[in-house]
Design a protein around this nucleic acid. Structure first.
Lengths: 163, 163
DNA sequence: TATTGTTATACTCTATAACTATA
DNA sequence: TATAGTTATAGAGTATAACAATA
């Protein structure tokens, strides 16, 4: 890498900035970031516990506890599909579905505010580059609205057609 | 903001990606991210508990516990300056200082790897934009190597002189 | 009275190990 | 035996409230 010394630390600072703002918006919706991530991942289809644990980068006991707390709050529910009596699938309740949709809209609205110090052109450029990094570096999960990892791999923001 | 719908969620995904990699590098150095942040903030000068709590965005009891654990591990030590017998200042031990310097070097080396899918030119551009966002949006703390918030505010990466 | 820092308590998140029930 | 999920236990991080000592 040709990055300047200290850039790694700046990236960490940026990540902290983003996550703090995200956590604050989550709190206004009475959700924790982990609950939001969980809801995000099952909002379109139910998933099994093992699959969820892998997607979220958690060990299974960690997921069990997270689900316990979310279930206690009426956000998700466990289902037992017929084909395997060991299995559990998790889906959102209507309350959980509403919560994650409202949160997603709010995050989409307000989180990009961190860029407001940039010119409109630079904001545009930054957005392209972040999308390229996210696509390339395998952004962990389905934080996006598109259900699955969006992976259109064009990284040449400098030569972006639709600008 | 003119950002596309879903971009806020992509930013969160990027933040998670960065923090996961950061946490992993911290773990290799036998530090938690919170301990790293703490050490980073006192590596050049001792600070009082109240000041530290404000800088780190923590309530004071949270900081007390963090310091307890770091002290137990020999990373920091509490000092009692003469001028106010209520006050406590915190400084690094030699062990703590070595640990944070080694970590910082490693983070600087390896964290920018997340950009390796971009062209060299786009990496450069991205670094400029991130620096501009960090300067503008007030990146929370002294994750950088420069001790205090670097705030050269030029945001026009597209017209950057030294490229 | 206001401030510095701590202790007490509680909850979320996460990890490892041991366990149950099913396949 | 292998897999799905849970329970048990532990520790880090964070919050609020109550407290101590000093200013």
């Amino acid at each position: 890498m040709t990055a300047h010394h200290g850039f790694g630390a700046t990236l960490v600072g940026l990540a902290v900035l983003i996550q703090r703002r995200h956590a604050q918006i989550c709190a206004e919706h009475d959700l924790t970031p982990a609950q939001a991530q969980l809801l995000c991942m099952i909002k379109d289809q139910p998933r099994g516990m093992t699959e969820l644990a892998q997607l979220m980068g958690l060990a299974k006991p960690g997921l069990s506890g997270l689900v316990d707390r979310a279930e206690r709050r009426g956000l998700v529910c466990r289902n037992t599909p017929g084909y395997d009596r060991r299995a559990v699938t998790l889906s959102t309740t209507p309350l959980g579905k509403d919560a994650i949709e409202a949160l997603f809209a709010d995050v989409s609205d307000r989180l990009p505010d961190i860029l407001e110090g940039l010119s409109a052109q630079d904001q545009h450029l930054f957005e392209h580059l972040v999308n390229a990094v996210a696509a390339t570096a395998g952004v962990p999960l389905h934080f996006g609205g598109r259900g699955e990892c969006g992976d259109r791999g064009e990284s040449t923001a400098t030569a972006c057609g639709d600008c």
